[in-house]
Amino acid sequence: MGATAAKLDIGVVVAVGAGAEPIAAAAQAAGAHVQRATDVEEAHRMVLQLLAPGDVILFKSSRDSGLRYLGDRITVEQGGSLSEDGSTHA
């Protein structure tokens, strides 16, 4: 995943938690800019600092990591909404 992010010229890879270290290492080795966060709250603060108008965020997570909810949280904070099926709308 990390090497693919670098290949796709993703601006910043934010890796959250120790379990994401292989992704962070592969992204960094492939030339991507990598930020590491220890938990979801740190990732939230980090993403808000990095976010600029027009940016697109891709959240890749395991079911139990909580990053899906971080995506929902940031969407709502940035003026988007959530539909009944849980999908987000800007």
Rank of each mutant, 00 (worst) to 15 (best):
I10F: 06
V14Y: 03
E21V: 07
D85Q: 11
A90K: 11
V34W: 02
G19A: 12
A27M: 08
Q49F: 14
A27K: 00
G80T: 04
Y69G: 08
P53V: 08
Q78C: 01
I74P: 03
R45C: 07
A18V: 08
A18L: 06
A30E: 13
A43M: 12
D72Q: 15
G66N: 01
A6C: 06
P53M: 06
V56R: 13
D55W: 08
P22H: 07
Q49S: 13
A43D: 10
E42Q: 14
L50S: 12
Q49P: 08
A37V: 04
L70A: 01
V56Y: 14
R63A: 04
R36E: 14
L58G: 11
M1H: 05
S62A: 05
A18W: 02
L51S: 15
V13S: 01
V13L: 09
G11T: 05
R45M: 12
Q49T: 13
P22M: 05
A25W: 05
T4A: 09
P53H: 08
S83M: 11
S87C: 01
L48W: 15
I10A: 10
A37K: 04
Q28L: 08
K7D: 14
D64S: 05
G17W: 02
Q49G: 14
I10T: 13
Q35V: 11
A52W: 07
A20S: 07
V47C: 06
A5C: 12
G19T: 07
T88F: 00
V56K: 08
I74G: 00
D39P: 11
L58E: 15
Q28W: 08
A5M: 06
R73E: 14
E42Y: 11
P22E: 04
H33P: 09
